[in-house]
């Protein structure tokens, strides 16, 4: 392209009640075009009930070199999971 085209990330909700899921991206020069292009490319097989498009440049991502400090500290917080707790025999619905 003559200009560097804008890239938009596409998120599709496959049906009401479910979360929007990232499916890929499209190039488009404006918002409407981004939405239309996403519709034309990513819902050709009834995949959608709602579409979000977000400019790729607006997404802030964690960096892979930060991944240890970001995610490893959660490893030993086992008390956040229900299986950590001992329940007396016979206790139900808890």
């Amino acid at each position: 392209m003559t200009y560097k085209s804008d890239i938009w990330e596409v998120f599709i909700q496959s049906k009401n009640g479910l979360a929007h899921k990232h499916v890929g991206n499209v190039h488009a020069s404006d918002k409407k075009m981004a939405l239309d292009n996403a519709r034309d490319l990513y819902t050709r097989r009834n995949e959608g009930s709602c579409i979000w498009v977000v400019k790729t440049s607006h997404i802030v991502s964690s960096e892979s070199e930060d991944s240890e400090s970001f995610f490893d500290p959660a490893n030993d917080k086992v008390y956040r999971h229900p299986t950590f707790y001992k329940m007396p025999d016979g206790a139900k619905h808890i």
């Binding site: 085209s5 499209v26 190039h27 488009a28 239309d36 292009n37 034309d40 490319l41 050709r44």
Partner: peptide, 11 residues
């Protein structure tokens, strides 16, 4: 004129 538009016109 773009790949995206090609797909739109086929639709």
């Amino acid at each position: 004129p773009t790949l995206e538009e090609d797909i739109a016109m086929s639709n």
